[in-house]
């Protein structure tokens, strides 16, 4: 009996996807990211130390989000059309590979790539932040010593203060939230590319839905709690139903500010992301399983 779900086949397809995407010079983006992070870390020495650390975190997390979303949309949108154009899809599907495995392989490949990219960028960013925070601390302690107020308590207080603004485990949970959002966008884009007629269409629609998704929370609350006419309510309901709530993963702003990510909060985000992933994967399968190639 032929197995219709083979993790090793899916993994083979995922790894082929990763190498395929890596050949598109994605490493260059990581290099650009490092330059941006270093620049943000050291470019504005006039500001107060706390604000400097915040700016470094803001810019780095901004770049992380941009990287993950752009990768999720553009890389995913390219995959199916390219395989179809190159006819590699024919040779793959002419092997005993169920179509859902092919889709899962592609999805997993993009997720592995985004995940690895985020980990690398997180490492680079953490390194710069740690360096910057050590410098800030050294400068502040130095200033205290010159004022003659460098008591052990004062230094300890300063260390605690800078430590809270600097590198914490919590920040990595913020990166995880960015990954969750990117995973949803990837699954969404894959679903759109299963019925789209061109790569450009896929990219435009995916970005559009992602953008609307960031306002979905507002739309949903308007529908659930607002007082409006039937037409407005119907429209907002439709938008709220067909778009995912991307805003539910936007915790980085407050994580940067030192707000702790609780286990429950993490669980909520993981569940939400998992629900979208599963749902979009099922829809993708339904669209792809009988697609004419």
């Amino acid at each position: 009996m032929h197995s219709s779900f083979s993790p090793s086949r899916i993994w083979t397809l995922a790894m082929a996807t990763v190498t395929q995407l890596l050949r598109m010079k994605i490493m260059a983006f990581l290099l650009v990211f490092c330059v941006i992070v270093v620049a943000a870390g050291f470019a504005f020495p006039v500001m107060n130390p706390e604000q400097q650390l915040k700016l470094l975190k803001d810019v780095s997390f901004g770049a992380l989000q941009l990287f993950s979303i752009v990768m999720a949309v553009c890389a995913t949108a390219l995959l199916l059309p390219r395989d179809l154009e190159d006819r590699t899809l024919y040779t793959i599907l002419a092997k005993p590979v169920p179509r859902h495995e092919y889709l899962l392989g592609k999805l997993l490949g993009v997720l592995v790539l985004i995940g690895a990219g985020l980990i690398l960028m997180d490492l680079a960013f953490s390194g710069v932040l740690w360096l910057r925070q050590s410098l800030v601390l050294a400068q502040s302690v130095n200033a205290l010593q010159q004022e003659g107020t460098a008591t052990p308590e004062a230094i300890a207080q300063l260390q605690a203060f800078v430590g809270k603004q600097g590198l914490t485990w919590n920040l990595h949970l913020g990166v995880a939230a960015i990954f969750f959002k990117a995973a949803v966008v990837t699954a969404l884009t894959l679903m759109i590319s299963c019925f789209a007629s061109s790569t450009l269409f896929t990219i435009v629609i995916s970005f559009l839905v992602t953008l609307i998704g960031h306002g979905q929370g507002l739309i949903r609350e308007y529908f659930l709690t607002g007082h409006a006419g039937a037409v407005k309510k119907g429209l907002s309901a439709l938008l709220a139903i067909i778009t995912p709530d991307m805003g539910a993963f936007d915790i980085v702003d407050n994580v940067i500010n030192g707000q702790a990510v609780t286990l429950t909060a993490f669980g909520f985000m993981a569940t939400t992301a998992g629900t979208y992933l599963l749902g979009y994967a099922v829809v993708s399968h339904l669209l792809f399983v009988e697609k004419e190639l």
Partner: peptide, 21 residues
């Protein structure tokens, strides 16, 4: 059925493969 493809080999017209391999 996916099983039907276990005993078949296919060469498409002007095949292309992943260029990076």
């Amino acid at each position: 059925l996916v099983e039907s493809r276990r005993e078949v080999g296919f060469l498409p017209e002007n095949p292309y493969f992943y260029k990076h391999l």
